[in-house]
Design a protein around this nucleic acid. Sequence first.
DNA 1: GCATCCTGTATTGTATACAATCGTCCGCAG
DNA 2: CTGCGGACGATTGTATACAATACAGGATGC
Lengths: 238, 238
Amino acid sequence: MPQRPVSQSGTIAPPSVTADEPSPAAVPAYVRVCQQLRQDILAGVFPWGGRLKILDLVRRYGVSQMPIREALQKLQGEGLITIQPNCGACVRTVDEKFIGDIYDLRGAIDTLLIRRATSRATADDLRALEIILETHQQAERRGEINASLEYNKQFHRVIYRMGDNPDATEVLERYWDLIDALRRQFGFSIGFMSNVIANHRRVLEAIADRDAEAAVRIAAESCERSKSDLIERMRRPR
Amino acid sequence: MPQRPVSQSGTIAPPSVTADEPSPAAVPAYVRVCQQLRQDILAGVFPWGGRLKILDLVRRYGVSQMPIREALQKLQGEGLITIQPNCGACVRTVDEKFIGDIYDLRGAIDTLLIRRATSRATADDLRALEIILETHQQAERRGEINASLEYNKQFHRVIYRMGDNPDATEVLERYWDLIDALRRQFGFSIGFMSNVIANHRRVLEAIADRDAEAAVRIAAESCERSKSDLIERMRRPR
DNA sequence: GCATCCTGTATTGTATACAATCGTCCGCAG
DNA sequence: CTGCGGACGATTGTATACAATACAGGATGC
């Protein structure tokens, strides 16, 4: 197992002009910085494992140290960065082991939530899933990758909501955008997304049949497949 | 289902004299405050769901607003408190639903880690578990509750380490101390802890036999039992 | 040549002062 | 009495200045 950290491509330059609207609900600077920094990290502006110096961030986001520091603590809570007291902050390092680990974690929690979702599903829930799945399929046929990832996320989100366990859901949500970012960075094999959709269809049918074990089994398989596919793509030189 | 928030007993008074040693490794104030505040919350100094005002904390811990604010962000990352931008911080509310949810979450991740631990267990691992279990049993016989909880935690921790998934482990660790605090607050039924030890024994044997499914099954049962017991105790008036 | 210590600089951490925001209470019109 | 609006006080959020720490480089002693 190589285990080498994967470095992202992006440059660090553009100071990111923040168009300051009047005050939609007076969102504090540290919240804004947190969102933007998260976005920037996921967009590849800062390399995985790279150092985040406070003064750089001060210049980039145009606020003083304090909001920056608070935003960093928030992002550490989300697991996107790590902070060594007195030694600065770094973007999380991403390697194969890590990818495997978070997919395993996701698989475990998926199992819990899908099982619960199956026994709690209402007709409205099933209809909502049906609609998302249909839209997802259309987007996939048109080759719209970003839209596909978005509907994929929505499908899972509805199931998670049905699972009715906010703390478990929160863990999954935390890593979702990170995985999506890696997907965008490394792409996926042809036929992968249509396979995902087919599995969603089967999961939906199993839930409608109140067959929790089937739903769980299919989802676990789909998760494993997704893990292997991503790790496979990461191994390639490009 | 009642769903009412449980309020803790403690008073808020004592300013907690922090004996300031020279500088063991120069741990920043926000880290210290974070640890102390976590301890204080778990010790019942601040009621579940209660408001945490920055100025109060400034007075209590004898540092300025900045380290306090950073500590609050850290604790929010741990899920111990919630922060509404512009509206202050509150200790997490604890009710039956929440307890059930985190036990379910723990059960799901336990399943993952125990399965992995079973296939990766070394002779040293098994010996370590054996020793902890033995010591746990002795502590239980002597009726030492705090020591029992500590060895209980250690047993699980070793298994988690064997599971070799830091991110999954981190989720479990996050809620562990919270559950233990509730255990101390509400106590447990007689015979509960000896039952836990018996289950640990069975899990250990299953792992030694490389029987992952048995280990997982026993652990899941034990987790469910623990959940019911705690909720049961919470329902009682005192 | 090697280890040790010292010093300078870049960076992180803290305190204080000040600005912005929220909630509440009061007054007032309807 | 009820609903609305505006001012006050309590609280949160931000900027700046300053202190503490870590790290790199070189001088010194052996």
